[in-house]
Structures are given as C-alpha cells and as structure tokens.
Design a protein around this nucleic acid. Sequence first.
DNA 1: TTATTTCAATTTTTT
DNA 2: ATTGAAATAA
Length: 743
Amino acid sequence: MTQTPAPFPERPAADRPDYLQRLNPEQRAAIETTDGPLLVLAGAGTGKTRVLTTRFAHILLSGRARPYQILAVTFTNKAAREMRERIGALLGEPVEGLWLGTFHALCARMLRRHAEYVGLGSGFTILDTDDQLRLLKQVIEPLRIDTKRWPPQGILGVIQRWKDRGLTPERVTPAEDCDFAGGQCRPIYATYQARLVQLNACDFGDLMLHVTEILRTRPDVLAQYHRLFRYILVDEYQDTNTIQYLWLRLLAQREGQPANICCVGDDDQSIYSWRGAEVENILRFERDFPGAAVVRLERNYRSTAQILGAASGLIAHNDGRLGKTLRPGREDASGEKVRVASVWDSDDEARLVGEEVERLRAGGHSLAEIAILVRAGFQTRAFEERLITLGLPYRVVGGLRFYERSEIRDAMAYMRVLNQPADDLAFERIINVPRRGIGAAAMQKFHVAAREGQMPLAAAVMDLIARGALKGRAREQMTALMACLARGREALPREGHVVVVETLLEESGYIDMWKADTSPEAPGRLDNLKELVRALADFESLGGFLEHVALVMENEENAGAERLSIMTLHGAKGLEFDTVFLPGWEEGVFPSQRTLDEGGLKGLEEERRLAYVGITRARHRAVISHAASRRIYGNWQSAIPSRFIEELPAEHVTTTGGAAQARSRTFGHAPLSSTAFPVMARRPRVTDVGEKGPTAAMAVGTRVFHQKFGYGTISSVEGNRLEVAFEKAGPKRVLDTFVEKIP
DNA sequence: TTATTTCAATTTTTT
DNA sequence: ATTGAAATAA
C-alpha cells in the first residue's frame, strides 16, 4: 500500500497562481500531480470538491489541455452542476463544450453519435422505470411465469445487475443464470433487449452498456476518444459499478501514453453496494493503474474534534479499509461531545428532537442548518407529526420528485407520442388516460394487429379504424385521439412546441380529467401540469426537453427556505449541517435487519459506513437517539440499542435518558440538569408496582411486567439484555430497564 | 370495463 | 397500519 506522500516543500507563495493559494500540502499534491494515474482518498469534509474543481482549472490554466479534452464524471446531476459552477467561478467565466456530467449523461451523448453500432437510431428514447416494467411484463407474458414467485421487478433487477456488470445477453454464461424465474432470466433478457431495439429505445443501464460495448468492439471509435480525452477526473469513485469501471478503464488506458486518470473517493463512504457499486474498484486502483500515486486528504475542516473522534472510533471497527484518519483541520475548541439519548418510543424521540430544535432556534440557530437523518423512510412520520404540532417548518428531502408524479409522466407520455409516433410504450400509457373505454381486450386486439402488420401500435390503431374493425365508443374516442395527435404534429413547426403541447393536453381531455377530479390532490396536479408547460418553454425543441427530463429528473424549487431537513442517511451524503439528529439507532433498524440477513458482515460494515457518513455530516452537534420500543408494521417491537452506540469511543460521547443509565459504560453521571431530555416521562412509576429493573436481580424465570407487552417470564439474560416470553406479545428481547419485576 | 375486495409486502436510490 | 397490486364481482 502506498504511503501518503511526504509533506511537499512549501514554495514561496508568490510563485503560485492565485487559485493554488490557501490549499494544504495534500490538496496541492492532488492538484499538481497532473500526469499519470492518481487516487485521491478524500475523507469526509476534507475539501474534495475544491480539489476536483481546482485540478480541472489547473489543467486548463497550465495549458495542458483545452476544456473539451477533459472528461469529468460525477454520479449526480447536482454534483455535475456544482462542479460546472465552481469551475466557472475559478476561471472567471462560464466554460462551453465541457465533457462534464454524470456517467449516464455523458454516455447518452456518446451513444447518440454511435447508436448505429448497436442497432439504434440516434433519436432513440430513454425509458423510465415504468416503461421498463411495462415492456418486461409484455416480454414475460407469453412465458406464463408465476409472477407471484417471480415478480417482474425482481427479473428487472436481475437484468439490471447484469447490465451493471457489463454483461450483454451474449455474455451472460449459463452458469450466471440464477434460478430466478425458473432459470429463464437469460432468454428473457435477450428478448427484452431485442424489443428495446425494435422500439428504438434503451433503458438507463443500456446507456453505459451500449457505449462500453462500442468502445470494446470498435477500435476506431475508442481511438477517437483516446485522442480526445487527455485527462479524466472521476468523483465518488467508491460508488462506481463494474460497467462504469470498465468504461473508465477503456477510456483511460491509451497505447503508449500514461493513463491520466484521477479518481477521487472515500472507501469509508461507500454505501451503495446494494445497487451495484463495487468498493473493490477503489481498493484495487493501484493494481489497475500501475505506478499510481495516492494522496490522502485527512484534514477535516468541517467538524469539531469530538465529532471526528466519535466518527473515527466507529469506522475503525471495519476491516479492509484503505486507512485514513480524519484530523481536525483547525485547532479550535474541541466542541460538544456527541450525545446519545435513550427514549421510550418514537413519539418520545420526536418530542426530544422537537424540543432540542426549538431550543436551538431560540438560541439563534438557523433551521436550514439542522437535519434529521433517518435510516429508512418510515421513520420520518413521527418527526413530521411532531414538527407540525410545534409549527416548525421542515421539508422531507427525497420524496416523490416532480418528474416522478403520475400526472407529469402522463403528460410526458403525450409529448413522447407527439414527438415519436412509434413510441409504443408512451402510447400505451396514454391510450386510456383519460378513460376512453379501452380495456385489456381492446389492448390485446391492438397488439395483435401491430404484430401482424409489423407496425407501431398507433399505426395499428389507425389501420383498424380505417378498416372499420373498431366499433362504438372506442372507435369514436380513438379517432378523436389520433386526430388530436395528428393536428399537434402538423402544427408543431408553425406554433411551437409549447403551444402545441398545451393544446394537446386540453383537446385530448387530459386536463379535463383532472378538473373533473374531486380528490384533494387534483388542484395540485393541475398546478404541476402548468409548471411542466412553463418548464417546456426553457427548451428549444420538444426532443431537447424530453432528453433533459429523461436524464435530469429534478425540479429546482424551494431551495434556501428557512426549514429544517428530514432525509435518509443515503440522501445526506455530500451535505453538511451545524446540527444533525440521528434517530433510530436500534438493532434491526440501524443496522437494518434486512441488510444483516442479506449481506452478513459485508452488510454490517456498510451500515457502519452509513453511520460514519451520518456523524460526519455534523459540523458542531450530533445527537444520536434510540428508542426502547418501536411500532413496526402495526405492532410493537422492543428494541435494543444499536451496536454502533457501544462502538463509539466513550471519551467523545455523553449519554442521557433512563435506559442508558443502566448501561455499564455509563459511569453514573446522570445529566439531571438537562431539561432538554425529559425522557422516559411515560414510564410507569415503578416503585408503585415493584422493584426497579436494574437494581433487581433479573434471573431466568423471573416474572416481569412491560409497559407495552404486558406480563411475561424471563427466558434468558445477557448482561442488561433480556429475552422475555410475554403472555400476549410472545417472545421479545428487551432491556432490563423497561421491565419491572413482579413480587 | 370498471369497482370492489382481498392480499401481501414493507431499506437505502441515481440515472 | 398502511399501501399498492392482483383477483373477483357487478
């Protein structure tokens, strides 16, 4: 393993251009080591984005490459946008013609140029998840697969994972074919791909897969990109999957020239293995690119020493790390310790967080600098309810996004059919929305006609109308719909896409459908449709708009409002806040039981990295909490504190709350002054009922009472953790503090 | 063809 | 408890 380079000699400041000022030696090394492979291990809060953007600017300003000769890859559109803005700021002007974007956006751009090599036209459509599923269902329908046992989503998952690994249908070996769908996944995959080509469409995975396949099989195309890209920059390298790795390696390894690839990442923040990311990619970097330099960014400028100490101590429990230790960047006061609060249940937890937030706000803290980071979506509800009663403005980040709403997808489908009459999947989506009396039977008829006539669905419908094979209301409605679309297409060059789409949505009856809808969401949906038409005006053409939406499923709204954020730990990666609440640190919730079951030790380590990501989001304050009981799927479950709590180094942690006081690690310093934690308020007054838990001998066979589960008998004891056979609730694991001995 | 009922699943998510 | 999708009745 390569060592962090020795400190670099300080050159006189005057020698260095402006943009290289005020960087630490490691950051400067990461920027000035321009040629040859370079791995930058950037711990949380160590100035990663700054290094990436400055490196980009440095390559340009030192004359090593023109803007279009640098390939800069990110995972999210947000990261790409931020990078573009910051490069523009460094250079003093916006730069044009950059190859800067997400893996998928860059691949889409490449694939439009070379689509014919994989049997597509350059005007191919990019399908969303709905379309993918609909198409797959069509493919598996004749196979009479038991969709109970093998849900289409699962099959799609298998295909997606193959694509993540760079496996085209031909490359999937029989051994690779899992027993999913009765071992029929391989032929299903092949048919699915063939159908996509017929539709002149591809899914997200295909963007990477097709381009990589082209680069693999067309040396001329590959050479063209080798000549073009002199430098490659990759963000969040620990999140790359196999296909992304293959794509990068193909582009980076040039005959007789150094691989000028710089990957920035942090193995400790790899939290996406479940969607195909391979941490091995970053662990293997030095073997993949011989002679690679490695720079470690370990000076953290974000968090207090206490927070860093807690996070470092926790992550140290993982094996197989590349090894980094975050050091406080500034020697300021060490700050507050990380707090661990024990509460009774999720309502208590929400109350505690709410009170703390109110206190912070009273102390002049901005709500925008506070976040509640949960493991899973179901945890948000208790907080939302509490924040509403307190009148605290909040936002749940990562709910349904604009372009995922059904009315927007419907409207988009109308546009797609307008844009490409052969877009069967879009046509199928709108054909009976609003209701036009087309059910399964009619649909079947259309499909048969389309297959027999070797034509798109829409054309088949026209044909059936012309031949009089359609009767009654269906005929009327279909004639009207087709006329609508035809009028729109004809008017497009004259009236412009905005007006035409607006008219189409009106005349097709789609708008009226929502106007007639009396449900409370309907007005909001109409507003969304207005907003969609407005967004349409920002684009030159319909095609341009559709491409944008397919790749950038984002809405840029309500930023900067004075609200606190509730989001998942995954959603919080890359963000930072003054104060971070980390609720639900209980075995089964965090670490998640499912991850443990499915991923074993690997899964546990990923959960631990998630915990590490959570803590390192905090600049000044981190409050971890765990509840003693939690209602999951309608019934109460007892909960034991997460093992991650015990793994936090004691010297960086303070503990509050009743249950915690029973823990051996707490040396009796009960924070009685803390009015912020009126925890355990709803615990029974134990002295009235029986002896208090921790002081009483808890032996196997002891009869106990539990607030939520009722009466039961202890069946095993493990320190302060009991297993109790409850009379009504069955066997549960509980902490001794939450039961009372029955005399 | 649509409305109703039952039934199961229920982490994390970008593009 | 809640929700969404598939089976079944009107």
